[in-house]
Amino acid sequence: MLVDSHCHLDFPDLAEDLDEVVARAHRAGIGHMVTICTHVTRFERVLATARRFDTVDCTVGIHPHEAGTEPETSAETLVAMADDPKVIGFGETGLDFFYEHSPRAAQERSFREHIRAARVADLPVVVHTREADDDTVRILQDEARAGAFPGLIHCFSSGLDLAEKALELGFMISISGIVTFKKAEALRETVRAVPLDRLLVETDAPYLAPVPKRGKRNEPAFTALTAAVVAEVKGVTPDELATATTDNFYRLFTKARRPAAAAAAE
C-alpha cells in the first residue's frame, strides 16, 4: 500500500469525476490520501470531501499564497477546527517568495500560528516553501526553541541544506512527481541522502504529474509512478519503498488510521 500524503481532492480539476479518481487510486495501490486545505474559508468543503471516503483524511490551514486575503486565524481556532476525527494535520502553510501573492509579513504570521497549533495539538504541520529556504529555516528553528512540533516539508524541491536542517528538527521530507523530471538530478541526489525512514511520497494533485503523465492532470493514482522512481533512487524495491513510506506516514500522522482492508492484509 502507498499513501498519497498531499493532494487537493476538493479542487475543481478533480471534483467532476472524484469518485472515479479515488477508485483509480485504490486500483493503483494507493490505500490512503490526505486532501490538503489551502483556504480556511473553504475548510468545510475540504472536510466534506474527506468525509465522503473512508480512505481520505484532511488538514486545515491557509496556503501562503492566501495569507494576505484569508481571515487572520489563530492557533487556537485552528486547533478547534482540527477536533474532527478526519482532520489529521495543519496546513499547508509556509512561505512562498517566488510568486509573493501575499505580503511576507502576513505569510510569516500565518506560518507561526500553524506551527503553534501543531505544537498544542501534537499534529503535523505541512510546510510549503519556495524561494524562501533561509526564512523557512529561521522560523522553524525559532519556533522549535519554544517547544518541539511534528511536521514535514511537502513537495520538496530544495537542496540538501534545507533537507538536513528539517531532518534535524525531526521533520519528514515528502517527494512529489518533480523527482521524475529529467532536469531534477539535484533533487534525486537529495533523495539519496535522506534516510528511508524519513521519506513520504505525494502527488500534489491536480498539479505536477510525474513522467510519463507530465503535462496532464495529476491524480492520486500517479503516486505509484513517483514511488517507483524514489525506490530506484534509493536502491530498494518498490515494495520496500511502499512499506517504509507508509509506515513513516502513520508514524508522523498519528491521528490517521490505516484503512481496514490494509490493516487486515497485514
Rank of each mutant, 00 (worst) to 15 (best):
G170F: 04
T38N: 15
D247G: 03
C7F: 11
A67L: 08
F156G: 01
V22E: 03
A117V: 07
L167H: 03
P64H: 01
G159R: 00
S157I: 01
A209H: 09
G177S: 12
K86V: 01
V87R: 06
R109E: 03
F171D: 01
V233T: 12
H63I: 01
R109L: 13
T73S: 09
A67I: 02
K216S: 15
D133K: 03
F90R: 03
L47E: 01
A25T: 06
I30N: 00
F111L: 09
T190R: 13
V233A: 09
I139A: 02
D135K: 15
P150R: 06
H39F: 13
H26Y: 14
I173P: 08
L252I: 02
P220G: 14
E232L: 08
T41F: 12
K234R: 12
V40Q: 09
S102H: 05
L169H: 02
T180H: 11
R116T: 08
H8K: 11
F156P: 05
F90G: 07
E189W: 09
A48V: 01
L196S: 10
H114C: 13
K216C: 12
Y99S: 06
D84V: 00
A117L: 10
S5M: 07
G31L: 09
P64A: 02
R52S: 04
A260P: 01
A186M: 05
E72I: 10
M33R: 10
M81L: 15
V126A: 02
L95N: 00
M172F: 13
T69C: 07
L162E: 00
A144Q: 11
H65S: 03
F53E: 06
I36A: 04
F181L: 10
